[in-house]
Design a protein around this nucleic acid. Structure first.
Length: 288
DNA sequence: ATCGTAGCCTGGAGGC
DNA sequence: TGCCTCCAGGCTACGA
């Protein structure tokens, strides 16, 4: 969703200046804030690409050898605004852009929790599919919504793991774009418990799970994309669009939409997992 | 090589 | 009312 917006508004614009409001947001940049800015000013932005939570714009002239890379963390947003407007509360980085025609624009990186960040990174060959991606994305698996996503291959690699199925889903090297929410929702749809050992999954179950995952991601995207913030933002008591379509996530003690059994919340990896105890019984052998 | 855990960070919710 | 603690999560560093 973010990517689509960028595609339309900033492709081919030239960076005229850079402001870093919080150095933590560029902490991964190898030569610091100054280097980050120096590598951007005067460059022209190419079309936006995405893999998992990473989003980048190649930097022209062609052939691009580097890109400006954003990691959205859990609360990061990239906003396009007319230059000169009021700063958002958590504005971290502002790139001023001159489009081919029209007045200047801001590309703003807004991030409450500063888990995300921006950097300029060299392009490299992806280990997952051979595509041209920024170096920090090299080891990241293909997103289930990308064309090059190979469900058979991912399924095969998944079942060779020796871990709990949810851990595997959250491993960005295996596949990307799946966080805690989408993992829980897909497991519920596939009627699998999060602690099910990957090596006991039948081929059928793996393919059901990957289809469910894809469905969840497609639906979330259709609903306008979701950021964790949208779960909070509703100050006026209006439930977020995405929240309404969740079957189990964040719904402890409320009825399972399929069988009405109260949803259960378990601690998992210092976080939570939500399951329907009836649709997704804990396996006798279980593995986190 | 593979798997598991702690910690990073901010602010909203809820307890007292 | 205002403080305090808990909790959310993608990723990395590090330990087993």
């Amino acid at each position: 969703m973010v990517r689509r917006g960028l595609e339309r508004q900033v492709a081919d614009a030239t960076v005229t200046s850079v402001e870093v409001h919080n150095t933590r947001s560029v902490r991964r940049h190898p030569d610091g804030t100054a280097g980050f800015a120096a590598r951007l000013v005067g460059r022209r932005l190419g079309s936006a690409r995405r893999r998992g939570k990473y989003l980048w714009l190649p930097l022209h002239p062609l052939p691009a050898t580097d890109a400006v890379l954003a990691h959205l963390g859990m609360s990061g947003q990239l906003l396009v605004r007319p230059t000169g407007g009021a700063a958002e509360r958590h504005l971290r980085v502002r790139l001023v852009l001159q489009p081919g025609a029209g007045s200047p624009l801001d590309l703003r990186f807004v991030d409450q929790r500063t888990f995300g960040g921006l950097s300029v990174a060299p392009l490299a060959v992806s280990l997952a599919d051979g595509a041209c991606v920024p170096e920090p994305v090299r080891h990241i698996g293909v997103d289930p919504l990308e064309e090059s996503f190979d469900a058979a291959q991912v399924g095969h690699r998944l079942s060779r793991r020796r871990t709990g199925v949810k851990r595997a889903l959250l491993d960005q090297a295996l596949l990307s774009g799946v966080g805690n929410i989408y993992a829980d929702e897909a497991l519920w749809r596939a009627r699998l418990h999060y602690a099910r050992p990957t090596e006991t999954l039948r081929r059928r179950e793996v393919s059901t799970l990957l289809s469910a995952l894809r469905e969840v991601l497609v639906e979330a995207l259709e609903e306008g994309g979701t950021s964790f913030d949208s779960l909070y933002v509703d100050v006026d008591g209006q439930p977020g669009y995405f929240e309404r379509s969740l079957a189990v996530y964040g719904r402890a003690d409320r009825p399972c939409p399929r069988c009405a059994t109260p949803v259960r919340r378990d601690p998992f990896m210092n976080r939570s997992s939500y399951t329907c105890p009836r649709c997704q019984p804990r396996p006798r052998r279980s593995r986190w």
